[in-house]
Amino acid sequence: MIEIDGITKRYDGTAVVDNVTMTIAPRTVTVIVGTSGSGKTTLLRMINRLVEPSAGAIRLDGDDNRSMPGYELRRRIGYAIQGHGLFPHRTVAQNIATVPVLLGWDKARIDAKVAELLALFQLDPAIFAARFPHELSGGQQQRVGVARALAAEPKVLLMDEPFGALDPIIRAKAQADLLDIQKLLKTTIVLVTHDMDEAFHLADKIAVMDKGELVQYGTPAELVTNPATEFVQTLIGASERPFRLLSIETAGQAVEPGTADGQPVDAATSQRDVLSELLWTGRDALPVAAADGTLLGKVTLEGLARRAARPQ
């Protein structure tokens, strides 16, 4: 659990993060959004003390994050940034091993961890371990950057626009992989992004920052149905609201009894994508199948329309 308690950061008298209080539940994904310069990066960097706060405190599982030297704290917290920040003179394996080496792990344990992470991120160790960062594609570099952040098995992973430099297709894949890995490792993730679609896709909870202040902190559904300010409303986009609602839940959560014709959609597909498929194929229902292929029922156009409407 991360408790952010009245945290403030002032530069030359102006508060760039202003008295922010929020509690981040363990094993969840929290996404910080807001316009450029609203203080997202500063807030994130105060968690691992790359930036020291002017006032307030941050507690990790109850302990003040100033109870140990900053560099020791940072070895326990994963950190991944836009443009990956890999060390160009070190191989992929050496990059991933950085924090375990700093922590003094023995060689066998480090090697095992590197191999495990490369496999987890779908990078064949035989091919990639000995490569240098400039010999990887942008997507591969980004995966190695996240693997490095996870190498010492941190409970918390901070990510600052980690997918900002990726093309849309690789970006969608990276987001899906991140969710899988988060479920597997049960890491608490705090992620900063500009991209609202990304926020709605990844977040358990969204924190909206505006001019240094935390203007709303809630689930994606709360943000859509009950925006705290005009600013939140604009950020979400008035015309996007029904689709945002649908993008939060999956087809599995909208299943109705019965059958329908056509190629079954996976239960994990977002309702927004199912709607898109229905509109494009001109059908008004599609069957839904679980991951193992068993049919669960159907999703209907009418059902989705009801779910996309403003809650009464």
Partner: peptide, 14 residues
């Protein structure tokens, strides 16, 4: 590279 320095600090190098 600025990112390399940033990352080095961010992952806990002195």
């Amino acid at each position: 590279p600025r990112e390399a320095n940033e990352a080095a600090r961010g992952i806990g190098m002195t």
